[in-house]
Structures are given as structure tokens and as C-alpha cells.
Nucleic acid binder design. Structure first.
Lengths: 162, 162
DNA sequence: TATTGTTATACTCTATAACTATA
DNA sequence: TATAGTTATAGAGTATAACAATA
């Protein structure tokens, strides 16, 4: 792919890095989406939602899923509806707040997720097969700096650096 | 974001790396999309198409744009139509093949692209502001291995490693 | 009033497939 | 027949906003 054609200016290193990062992510993501569709007839957001729940045996509230998946609430409702219809997850009442639910995996959903997760892992291991474990650790650490910086609290404009 | 909840198995390093890569890309991409929308009322694919053309003063054929942007032809037609309607790009006949066009930036489109590219660069430089130039070079090199591996020709199943 | 979740809607992005014109 | 490009359509994926029920 030639996304990297976009680099062209005075800070070319940062631009080239961004375009390469985007390229890598898109290549891997396309493989994962295709695998989920072909082997499990599902989508990445559905897999992601189940992955969130797999880590929360008590289930998660809709707004917590919304926050973790970084999408707005209406979308969580839609994905959850689909998974409920298939019996993969269920809505459980929250004691003391009749507005809210917790969504959690059913036993069937947990089993399906485990199967999908195993495949998913093999796709990811293959995607990074060119890297040794030292490379993987370095990448993880460097990207950690990027992530922490991107997620820093919004700057107060009056104290912004020039 | 808690995408990283998805890591959970026997090759946790690769999974955690993938989820962190995805998180970083999504965070930066959201900023870029928001900036393009707010400041230039445009989208990332439109910006990408113009970026491809900025590097090809003679213009590019539709199928070449399709290949470089990794999307199918119908989408290129749609984006190009929009940009033509706004006067940013134009379709030029190809001598000797009356089926084909080359798409190229108009002077107006080139000027607009330059303005957008300048902003785009500042967003990207900021996104990687936590990294020194050695870090940037390391990341670029490591991601290069990942990219090359992902883009390797499809394996012949008869010679696949077990 | 504020919050939780749902519904309705619209838009971007993408792929597939049928199609036209030309090679 | 094959290729370049277009058109039509469908489906993900997302955001916004109005809404109902409850806090």
C-alpha cells in the first residue's frame, strides 16, 4: 500500500511513522475482520464487546461498555440486542437502579468467545511473527508512550505551550 | 480506553501489543478525522486521495488510486466525483485509451491540500511528541518488519509451515 | 434536573456485482 | 474476451438527537 505517499514535509519522520502505523493496523485489522466474518460470521465490534464481558464475569453496564469501547450508547444497544437474540449475552437487572442493566456473557457466549479468542490469538501471533520477543517488548513500550501522551487530559488553552 | 482487556491467553505479549497498536491508531485517527471535519469540512479518504495526487503531478488513473488506497473502484469514483464537483481535482483524458482517465489536482486543489497537509502535520507531530527522534526511528523500523511480513505474498498451502 | 438506556435517523465508508464503453 | 470505469445496492459502523423511565 502506498499510504506512505502522504508524507511530504518538514517533519517527515513523524509523518512517515504515522502512515506506517496506520498501514500496519489496517493490514492486521482487515485480516481479523475477514477471519471473524468467515469463520464465525461475526464482526469486530461484536467480538470486542464479548471480550470486554469476558473480563467482567459480573457483567458491565451499558454506559461502561460505551466508555470502554469508545462508541456512543445507541451502538451498544444495537450490538447487545444482536448478541442477546443469539443467546451469547444477557441483560441482568441492577439491584437499586431500575434504569440500568448489567450485560454479561451466557455460558454459551463464553464458550463461543473462547473459541473465537483462540483463533484471534493465532491471527495476531502470525501478524507479529516477524518480531522477536525483544522487538515485541520494545514496540509495546514505545507505543505506551504514544498512548499515554494521546490520552493525557485536555490542555487548558491558557497554559498551552507555544 | 480498555481495548486492552482483550488480551488474555498464552501469547499475551503479541495480543497486548496488537491491542495497544490498535488503541494508538484509533486515538490518533480520531483526532485527524475530527480536525479534517472541523477545520476543512472533509474526510480522511478525501484527504488521502488528494495526498496521493499531490505526489503524482501528472495525475493517477482510477485503478491506480484504487490499488494505492486499498479500496475498490466504485469508491474511488464516488470520492473523485465529490472532489470534481468542488473543483479540487479534474479528470483528464488519457491519450491512446479512451476508457481511462487520469485524475489530478487542480491549482485550487493543490493549494487546499497544502493548507490541510500543514495542519495534518502538526496533529501528527503532536501525536508523537512523547517520542524522541531515536524512538521514532526505532518504531518506524520495527513496524517496517511487521508491514513487510503482513504484505508478503499469500502462502502456497502446500508449502505452509506446520 | 440529571442519568440510563432506547429509538430513530443520517452519513461515511466499504464491498459486490451488473453494466457500458473501449481495447 | 478482457479491461477501465460507473452505477446501484447493501451492510458495517458511527454519531446525533429526541425520548421514556428512573434517580
Amino acid at each position: 500500500m502506498d499510504l506512505e505517499a502522504r508524507a511530504h514535509s518538514e517533519h517527515p519522520e513523524a509523518l512517515r511513522l504515522w502512515l506506517r502505523l496506520l498501514t500496519c493496523t489496517q493490514l492486521i485489522e482487515k485480516q481479523v475482520r475477514a477471519g471473524l466474518r468467515e469463520q464465525f460470521d461475526t464482526t469486530l465490534p461484536r467480538f470486542d464487546l464479548m471480550a470486554q464481558l469476558e473480563r467482567a464475569p459480573e457483567g458491565l453496564k451499558m454506559n461502561e461498555l460505551s466508555r470502554r469501547m469508545m462508541v456512543t450508547g445507541g451502538n451498544i444497544t444495537g450490538i447487545t440486542d444482536q448478541l442477546v437474540a443469539e443467546g451469547q449475552v444477557e441483560r441482568v437487572e441492577v439491584a437499586g437502579d431500575r434504569r440500568a442493566y448489567r450485560v454479561r456473557l451466557t455460558p454459551q457466549g463464553r464458550q463461543l468467545f473462547n473459541e473465537m479468542a483462540q483463533q484471534h490469538e493465532s491471527w495476531i501471533v502470525d501478524a507479529f511473527a516477524a518480531l522477536g520477543s525483544k522487538d515485541i517488548a520494545s514496540l509495546h513500550k514505545l507505543l505506551g508512550k504514544v498512548k499515554d501522551h494521546a490520552q493525557r487530559p485536555p490542555q487548558d488553552p491558557s497554559t498551552e505551550t507555544a
